[in-house]
Amino acid sequence: MPVVVGAIVVLLALAAFFVLAARRRGHPSDDIDSFRRQIDALSPEARRQTSERMKPSDGRSTDDDGANGT
């Protein structure tokens, strides 16, 4: 019985080790996907919505304060 439990523990430890090692190495396609998502998020279509939010909203101060540097 102790031998079986020991074997299970060792198997679980090995499985955990391989899972962690695989995660650390990462998959090449993850990098490609991540880069593709970044480029897509920078596309003019994706940016259009943010540009449209230029319209002054309720809390925005619109007075000209004269301080024109940023």
């Binding site: 939010r53 002054p56 909203s57 309720d58 809390g59 925005r60 101060s61 304060d65």
Partner: peptide, 9 residues
């Protein structure tokens, strides 16, 4: 989701 909400010196 709202845009620019504050612009102050």
């Amino acid at each position: 989701g709202r845009g620019i909400v504050l612009n102050e010196p």
